[in-house]
């Protein structure tokens, strides 16, 4: 056998939009939010090390652009966390149930349970309410450490 690849993936972004249903849209949003969080978070230690103190980032995070980027991070973090929890619960067979082996009839392994529907509804509700609240406190909330911790 030669080295010719038999991998079926490798289609990149095209695969994300090939078929759109609720599960695939959630998966697509999970990836987009994850990429944003990595891009927002991973350069930060390098900026801190290069500048020699954390206050450089704190000053940037207090600017309108910094706050806008931070709001996106906080909202995306909320969605990514909730959807990630749903994925873990599905993979552990807690909210979607384990596949049923029927001797005659084919039963879809990825059938949807009522618990799963409620979980999705709960995620959407918490993401919307929590997202608005998180965005609000990111803009208008306490932004001075001295106001939060008076003494070291």
């Amino acid at each position: 056998m030669g080295e010719k690849s038999t991998l079926k993936s490798g289609r990149g972004f095209g695969e994300w939009f090939r078929t759109l249903n609720r599960e695939r849209v959630l998966a697509m949003l999970h990836k987009i939010t994850g990429i944003y969080m990595v891009l927002w978070l991973f350069p930060r230690p390098w900026i801190v090390i290069a500048s020699g103190h954390w206050s450089t980032l704190l000053v940037f995070d207090s600017t309108p652009i910094g706050k806008a980027l931070a709001i996106l991070f906080v909202v995306f973090f909320l969605f990514h966390g909730l959807n990630g929890l749903r994925i873990v619960l599905i993979e552990l067979g807690i909210i979607s149930g384990r596949p049923i082996r029927h001797p005659i009839n084919p039963v879809p392994a990825l059938r949807e349970s009522r618990t799963h529907k409620w979980a999705i509804l709960l995620i959407i509700t918490i993401a919307i309410i929590g997202g608005i609240y998180a965005a609000y406190i990111t803009i208008f909330g306490i932004a001075q450490i001295s106001q939060l911790i008076p003494t070291r």
């Binding site: 906080v74 909330g141 939060l148 070291r152």
Partner: peptide, 18 residues
């Protein structure tokens, strides 16, 4: 006070400060 604090002030700035 916690409920009205910018989450990014708490993580990581306040934690590093303390």
């Amino acid at each position: 006070k916690l409920a009205f604090t910018n989450p990014l002030l708490l993580i990581p700035y306040a934690l590093v400060y303390a």
